[in-house]
């Protein structure tokens, strides 16, 4: 398995990169960390004639807080940039924790947040926690720029709303918010280097023991990361208890439509949704953004 031949571009500016994406069209692929693209290239799963690397675009690597917008994460930030960000530790430790659960250290050093989202596999670890925290993203084209809520970004396995012949994902924004706690629980068959069998992220807004609001997002149990709306509705305005959270777990399992694969059966994934939802809620309620 070897890399095929292709033309290689490393534009110096975002505008130049967008022009290349538009000009080269479907024959080109955008390269960020390469942890997914290079494997696909070696396996012949994609056969571009050109690769456009974003490596020179350092402006896409920063993680900052912009008053009025929220925490802005550059799409080229690596998973380990998220893991090690003091800003995230202070505001959304749960995002750093989720990034830390992803793949292994080598992949976290190379792989990027933007790449993880655009790759759009149903078991990805970052989308659930970002969706639970109501994140939105920016897509920049040669003449356009638009924002998309992350929960409506994914359209199917390996499919998302990005225009592959015109747009580049540039940033992820975690808006300033009222949530009091959030967390991502991942169940995998190993502690490192394993895809999620089921992942559950939750964010809660508490007033004392009352659940004012919650967002629950499930990973690896639906063609796209999916909000457990039934569970969220069930919790709204109630005083939390172990029994209530177990009911929410049950409701969440009704929002999942998992498949059976070599990592687990559909039935097992539903069992995991029940227990992980309950545990994630309890953790976010009692421990904050962890």
């Amino acid at each position: 398995m070897f890399l095929p031949d292709f033309d290689y571009h490393a534009p110096e500016t975002l505008a130049e990169a967008c022009d290349l994406v538009r000009d080269l069209g479907p024959s080109a692929k955008v390269l960020a960390g390469g942890t997914d693209l290079l494997i696909k290239l070696k396996h012949g799963l994609v056969t571009p004639t050109a690769v456009i690397s974003l490596k020179a675009l350092d402006e896409l690597k920063t993680i900052t807080h912009v008053p009025g917008r929220g925490v802005v994460i550059g799409a080229r930030a690596t998973h380990n940039d998220l893991v090690n960000s003091p800003l995230l530790h202070e505001r959304f430790l749960s995002v750093s924790e989720a990034a830390h659960k992803l793949a292994n250290n080598q992949v976290r050093n190379r792989g990027t947040v933007g790449g993880n989202l655009v790759n759009a596999i149903p078991s990805a670890d970052l989308p659930p926690i970002l969706i639970a925290l109501d994140a939105w993203i920016t897509l920049v084209g040669s003449n356009t720029s638009r924002t998309v809520p992350l929960h409506s970004f994914f359209t199917g396995p390996s499919c998302c709303v990005i225009d592959p012949v015109d747009e580049i994902l540039t940033e992820i924004v975690l808006p300033d918010q009222q949530t009091t706690g959030s967390t991502y629980l991942k169940f995998a068959l190993r502690r490192s280097g394993a895809l999620s069998v089921t992942g559950v992220a939750v964010a809660v807004t508490m007033d004392g023991d009352t659940i004012v609001d919650s967002r629950i997002c499930l990973g690896a149990v639906f063609p796209v990361p999916v909000r457990a709306n039934d569970a969220e509705d069930l919790l709204r305005g109630k005083t939390w208890s172990d029994e209530l959270l177990a009911e929410a777990g049950e409701a969440a399992s009704c929002c999942a439509l998992p498949i059976t694969d070599i990592r687990g059966t559909a039935e097992y994934r539903l069992d995991l949704v029940r227990v992980l939802t309950k545990r994630a809620l309890k953790r976010a309620i009692t421990e904050g953004h962890v």
Binding site: R190, S192, G193, L195
Partner: peptide, 23 residues
């Protein structure tokens, strides 16, 4: 090693769960 009618489905360290340092 997971086989489907003789064909190995997990010929890689992603899906063959050898323990890692963390495990």
């Amino acid at each position: 090693m997971i086989f489907d009618e003789g064909k190995l489905l997990n010929p890689n360290f992603r899906d063959y769960k050898m323990l890692t340092a963390l495990d």
